[in-house]
Design a protein around this nucleic acid. Structure first.
Length: 273
DNA sequence: TTCCCGTCCA
DNA sequence: TGGACGGGAA
């Protein structure tokens, strides 16, 4: 049901746009309409703050400017430019997605929701974000900033707010005439809220506290990938090189092989080609 | 030490 | 549904 004419909707939109018109955040990925460049930004932004993506984005696009160049690039080169962003598996998924798009989508990013969802590393959020930012189509983008906005304005303070509770509100208030600008505006308003109060998105069921990073398998994985970007090594050499207990290193190596980030032959570990 | 952030798989 | 998955800033 279209509700754009309702007074409360226009009032809400006015608040969001008023802030956006004065304080919109400039990002390189907001200047482009190239679906590839937008895809790269969205994958980088998964679980990663804009400040870190900002510093890595241009170099990555310069090295891999197209689906084709990324699909054909050596994985080590891709991971090299990914360092500092975290969650290396995302870089592999992005490269696999580029390959699928070359082979099965005529080198064009699909705009269909289920086709996007079928791509490696593209989930509910990213599929919607791509539809909005790359194709300017209205789609319910729900990330932590959008949750913060809708919970702040429309929730009574209860905890465990589900995305399905927010969805009707998001649809009813969507500025279908300007999908891209609207979602940018929502996200910027969410950031503004979180700077000025306890994160309202904490009341979302989607909000999860991270397990400790220091001393974790995650931390060791990151160290190992960085170390192996300079060349292949045995488990023992890796342990010595990063100064971590060999038992722990072996466990992390196993998970990296299982994730398809490393290969192992004759106890020699290397970044996959 | 705490905070922040989507996807995937069991 | 809950845990694994990086890393930098406050």
């Amino acid at each position: 049901m279209a509700r754009e004419n309702d007074e409360w909707v226009r009032s809400f939109q006015r608040i969001i746009y008023a802030y956006y018109n004065e304080h919109k955040r400039p990002f390189r990925w907001r200047e482009t309409h190239d679906p590839y460049a937008i895809l790269v930004s969205e994958v980088m932004l998964q679980q990663t703050q804009t400040s870190r993506v900002r510093d890595k984005y241009d170099a990555f696009l310069t090295a891999f400017p197209t689906f084709e160049s990324l699909a054909q690039a050596p994985t080590a080169d891709v991971l090299e430019l990914w360092q500092g962003l975290g969650y290396n598996k995302r870089a592999l998924s992005l490269k696999r997605t580029a390959k699928v798009i070359m082979e099965r989508h005529g080198s064009k990013l699909p705009s269909d929701e289920s086709e996007l969802r079928a791509l490696p590393g593209i989930g509910t959020y990213t599929a919607a974000a791509l539809r909005v930012f790359a194709f300017n189509v209205p789609a319910p983008v729900i990330d932590t900033n959008v949750r913060a906005v809708y919970i702040h304005f429309f929730s009574d303070g209860s905890t465990n707010v589900r995305d399905t509770d927010l969805l009707p509100l998001i649809r009813d208030t969507f500025d279908t005439d300007h999908p891209r600008e609207w979602v940018y505006a929502l996200m910027d308003y969410g950031v503004y809220l979180k700077r000025n109060m306890k994160n309202p998105a904490r009341n979302s069921t989607a909000y999860k506290k991270q397990s400790r990073f220091e001393g974790s398998n995650r931390q060791v994985r990151g160290m190992i990938v960085r170390f192996l970007l300079d060349g292949k090594h045995s488990a023992r050499e890796v342990a010595k090189g990063i100064d971590i207990d060999e038992t722990m290193v072996k466990k992390a190596l196993e998970t990296l092989v299982k994730d398809g980030i490393l290969t192992c032959r004759d106890d020699t570990y290397a970044i996959v080609s």
